[in-house]
């Protein structure tokens, strides 16, 4: 029953405030009710009214009515503080599973200033921003990335209690934002088919014996070693300058192959992810083969991102 109501509410919201990359908060999209503080204030006003009645004091009446009127006028002000505010998705950087995804938002004011606008997902700590008149304010919201693939940001709550805190005006905004979540990198054996580009036909898919061309571990730094292979983490732990030592992956470009691994799909993707990162760091051209997909050997950031994207979206619809 509750679930049903929730769904109905979400559908209704979807119709009323359709997802869009930029949303201007307008009358149709803003809701407003008194806060708990507002209810306490109303109770205080009631007590003041009782005082006024019992003492037949016109000034007490006047102050009670003045504050009650301020309460009512504050409805307009609270609403106005939110109305006309433009929210825009300002992009998001892909993250790995287990990290916090950062979604950037731009709050734009087309006319007046908007003060103390709180943003966030329900159940998380809200961030508060002031938007200057005709100005822009940026805001980064974090979202835990729990599963690989596209992470939809979902409906965001934008609220304002300004000026008095007696009322809260809010809106649920779907900025149609999605965040690409890569698999969590996991260290492990190198799942590759060496030189697959010329041996593919003869050898098919085959895992090489362990060791010969693998990441061997760390060795101490010798002049002439590539600085790119320095193991900074170890250095920061005070273990001296160490270099990550790879067995010679010479000659042919390695092929990372999904099928060369065994086990659970997610585990395999995690391992592949690790190696995509490692090889990219070494600027070693490599290819990635996933069932039904082949990314030809290449190197560079674009290649890396394409591979990670393929890993992230593997097996997901769309």
């Amino acid at each position: 029953m509750r679930q049903q109501l929730k769904q109905r509410w979400q559908r209704w919201l979807g119709r009323r405030i359709p997802p869009a990359a930029s949303v201007r908060l307008s009358q149709r999209r803003i809701f407003i009710v008194p806060t708990r503080v507002g209810l306490a204030f109303a109770l205080a006003l009631l007590l003041m009214l009782l005082t006024a009645i019992n003492y037949q004091n016109s000034l007490a009446y006047a102050l009670t009515f003045l504050l009650a009127s301020v309460f009512i006028v504050a409805i307009l002000h609270t609403y106005r503080n939110l109305a006309g505010l433009m929210l825009k998705a300002a992009g998001a950087r892909p993250v790995f599973v287990g990290e916090q995804g950062q979604l950037r938002l731009r709050l734009e004011s087309s006319a007046r200033a908007h003060q103390a606008i709180a943003l966030g997902w329900p159940g998380t700590a809200y961030q508060t921003r002031d938007v200057p008149a005709q100005g822009v304010s940026e805001c980064e919201l974090s979202l835990p990335a729990l599963r690989r693939g596209w992470l939809r940001a979902g409906r965001l709550r934008v609220e304002s209690r300004f000026p008095l805190g007696l009322l809260v005006a809010w809106s649920w905004v779907d900025l149609d934002q999605a965040l690409l979540v890569y698999p969590q990198p996991l260290e492990g054996e190198l799942p590759l088919v060496a030189g697959a580009d010329d041996q593919l036909d003869e050898q098919g898919m085959r895992a090489l014996g362990p060791g010969s061309e693998d990441f061997q571990g760390l060795k101490s730094y010798q002049p002439g070693d590539s600085k790119r292979r320095l193991h900074w983490k170890a250095y920061s732990r005070g273990q001296g300058l160490l270099v990550k030592d790879f067995a010679a992956l010479s000659g042919r470009d390695p092929w990372l192959d999904f099928e060369a691994l065994t086990g659970d799909v997610e585990l395999r993707l995690s391992l592949l992810c690790h190696w995509v990162l490692q090889l990219s760091e070494r600027q070693q051209p490599f290819a990635l083969r996933l069932p039904g997909q082949l990314l030809a050997p290449a190197s560079g950031e674009q290649h890396r991102d394409a591979c990670l994207r393929a890993l992230a979206l593997f097996g997901t619809p769309g």
Partner: peptide, 30 residues
């Protein structure tokens, strides 16, 4: 200034309430 502005904007409504809100006798003696 904002507070004073809110008060000023509330004045017309306050006057209306002051004039029309029904007055009654004391509910209990104090």
């Amino acid at each position: 200034r904002l507070a004073a502005g809110l008060l000023l904007q509330a004045v017309p409504l306050m006057l209306l309430l002051f004039v029309f809100f029904p007055r009654m006798g004391p509910l209990w003696s104090l």
